[in-house]
Design a protein around this nucleic acid. Structure first.
Lengths: 287, 287
DNA sequence: TGTGATATGTATGTTTTATTACATAAAATT
DNA sequence: AATTTTATGTAATAAAACATACATATCACA
């Protein structure tokens, strides 16, 4: 229920003090309601208890309840412009179109979640070619881990992507302090992720987590988090924003590595030429 | 001065605790900053004083100053709803930003390349659960093949993803007329793709090709092509538009399959519950 | 491996803030 | 005009929130 409406159509008669309060609250709604009782009372020219009584009259038992409701509504209002996609054009019950559009929204919405400093930090870590880099992910996000790894492999030595549980334990055992462990873990969080992160953390590796929300239970075992939205209109979550981040990361790293990587790229091309384009890597994905 | 910018480009280096706070604050900006110090500290997983120190670092002498600034900015933003509160122009030599943006362009540019009839056709084919579906891709695009397969596997039986050359030949031999062979092949086309498509075509399978816009030599052996752009500012190509297509395809298929798939999704969830969340599939990616 | 510097948390003091109880003022009613 | 009813403010209090000092832990570097 809209608080503005609650203010405008109260359940019972308003007293003069109430009316003063309504005027103040409505006159730059809703931020005026974020103040303290004392401030609000002063602005309206009434006493503190009058504020309390009014708040109770419109249906909140505590002042803080009123404020939280206000903030919640504020949040929705701030988020709506993004979520309101393509109100122009006809009805789209076309799931393809619909999914594609809401995926774009997710990408746009994920952009502000990225913290420049985090990226810089991560790129710096990844530039240290003598440190190992391990990529690992879940059922779906595992492909992103592989995708990142496929790029990293070209840019630097000492990278690995974990694709089986045996490999996981072996690799974790070998981790040295300062190595980088990159974990992908999105909604429907997987226990293997928690275990891996915990172990990597114990080994004093730098743990990087690509995930969808910040409040992952892994939070305090993780040195750096890169988060993205996963919600779409589809029954499945989207990993497109995450993939954008992976590609952007690769671009940043390439940029930082500079010319040294050009040579390596050449070499890779030459070698592919020699080996023919038909080889498969050990057990992961093919060339 | 914009507080968001202040958060993103602090005057001095950020400590780990600072970064946690930045993330939380940015995550639900700006309402997350309206909380009390204690709540904010708890959300970020740091202590109260860390919050205070951070607030001082970004230029506020008291916490309440920070909050007032936040509210003030909030007010402005609410008064000018669509005044583009995203990034403030500026030079764009940041490769991350640059790549992300040009990737979005690629996605937008790929949209008109999709032909609705093709999608409908493909969805129809994939709805035939008695036909086999084989996914296959290249060095990078192989992950997309895997990603598609991981979804298809949930939606229907008889799906397979090829991850090694042995598997490739065996699987191709077993193809029956009417089976569906989905090939991903993007710039730096790979010979394995040509061979596979040729074979699948001879076996009278339906060959679907996900590729980029340039005419692939495979075009005439292929029954259906879904193309996307791969160019970005990054030295590497992007597969993001292709991934959007894969997800949109999955959404369309889910929509078409309707309720029958709901039950299957339930079953999958139940089974995951029973098996625990820690198993790995044979050699591909883990659960 | 030890040492200085930095970062972070714990404990604590001080101020605000919300809330209640009660007294006073205003209004309505007879 | 007196009395009841309603509205409002004052003052007290308990809870919480902010802020600080200090101790501990962590990190960087020699």
């Amino acid at each position: 229920m809209n608080i503005k409406e609650q203010l405008e159509s109260p359940p019972s008669e308003l007293t003069p003090a109430d009316r003063k309060l309504v005027r103040v609250l409505l006159n730059n709604f809703p931020t005026s309601g974020l103040k303290t009782i004392a401030q609000l009372a002063k602005d309206a020219g009434v006493s503190d208890p009058s504020v309390l009584r009014f708040i109770k009259k419109i249906g909140f038992s505590r002042y803080s309840d009123f404020q939280s409701a206000l903030v919640k509504q504020l949040d929705e209002r701030l988020k709506s412009p993004l979520l309101m996609h393509s109100k122009s054009g006809g009805i789209d019950d076309d799931p393809w179109q619909h999914t594609a559009e809401s995926t774009m929204d997710a990408v746009a919405g994920s952009e502000p979640l990225v913290i420049k400093q985090d990226i810089e930090q991560l790129v710096e870590w990844l530039s240290e070619k003598n440190k190992k880099v391990i990529c690992f992910g879940g059922r779906f996000s595992g492909f992103l881990a592989g995708y990142l790894h496929a790029h990293l492999q070209i840019l630097r030595p000492n990278t690995k992507c974990i694709t089986s549980s045996l490999e996981l334990s072996d690799t974790l055992l070998d981790l040295k302090p300062g190595d980088i462990f990159i974990q992908f873990d999105y909604r429907r969080y997987q226990q293997s992720a928690a275990v891996a992160v915990e172990m990597a953390h114990r080994k004093k590796a730098k743990v990087v987590l690509f995930t969808d929300i910040y409040d992952s239970p892994l939070r305090n075992k993780v040195d750096l988090t890169i988060s993205s939205l996963v919600d779409t209109s589809s029954p499945f979550d989207t990993l497109v924003p995450a993939m954008v981040q992976v590609e952007a990361l690769v671009a940043s790293l390439t940029d930082t590595l500079g010319d040294s990587v050009k040579d390596r790229l050449m070499e890779v091309d030459d070698m592919r030429e020699l080996l023919g384009t038909h080889y498969f890597s050990n057990n992961q994905q093919e060339q």
